[in-house]
Amino acid sequence: MNPILEIQQLTHTYSAGTPFQRTAVEGVDLSVMPGECVGIIGHTGSGKSTLIQHFNGLLKPTSGHVLVDGRDIWAKGSDIRAVRFRVGLVFQYPEYQLFEETVAQDIAFGPKNMGLAADEVARRVRDASAVVGLDESLLSQSPFALSGGQKRRAAIAGVMAMEPDVLVLDEPSAGLDPRGRQEMMAMLGRYRQQRGATVILVSHSMEEIAANVDRVIVMNQSKVFMDGAPREVFSHVAELEAVGLDVPQSARIAALLRDRGLAVGEDVYTVAALARRLLALKGGGGVC
């Protein structure tokens, strides 16, 4: 299988040639396979947001290449808008970009820009709002009358309605309560399942990343610091803490128990897995 998204030696410098010059992303190489669920974590200012804005051609690399389906999106004759329909990007706090008179019209903005027929647009609006769990009765309301959580769902539905094969989200659960976070992850899972789509998720929450993705990319100071399966990445507790990142609490507890000689494997990094492991140890007449 060929990667759906490939980044080669990507470097991006803001305000080049002024006193405000700043390199946000430096020499990043990445490739993402179709259907993968990738989590990107890193500090504020580590270059995550700059990196993901290259995925759909919102930012042009200062140097390096971005390939979607193996084709350079900045090559001559490449249609950048078509790339944006294929790689959907949801910004942080997407509820601040709602503008239409009704929720349905706002969700339809993307599909309409694709030039789809009216009945196809209507179908996509229905499907997308079902995926994010927006009740049909809300579709005819003004987006500004919705609650905060509903606004965010509507905004994400607006990107999902374009039915992109790669869905990139910048901190989709920022500012939501624990239940809202869970529902957010559930709805991303639904979208992924229904469309077989690739999901790339930027998050600050290690717990969230640990429980939901099958590959973690750690950004630090404009570079890729680690890239691998969660069990592999979260077993490097010391390195992650050295660059000021947390590891999931459950991974830390597992590491501490491991240090004390308990048979807790490195594949234990979620609350559920840790609980299962501890119960097994106890039932088996372990140390505790």
Partner: peptide, 24 residues
């Protein structure tokens, strides 16, 4: 950027279309 990500087009079309494109 967010509206561009949803396929908004600010650069082509007649003056009226471009003005309308500013609403989002």
């Amino acid at each position: 950027s967010a509206q561009k990500a949803r396929g908004a087009d600010f650069e082509s079309g007649s003056l009226l279309r471009r003005a309308r494109a500013l609403v989002p």
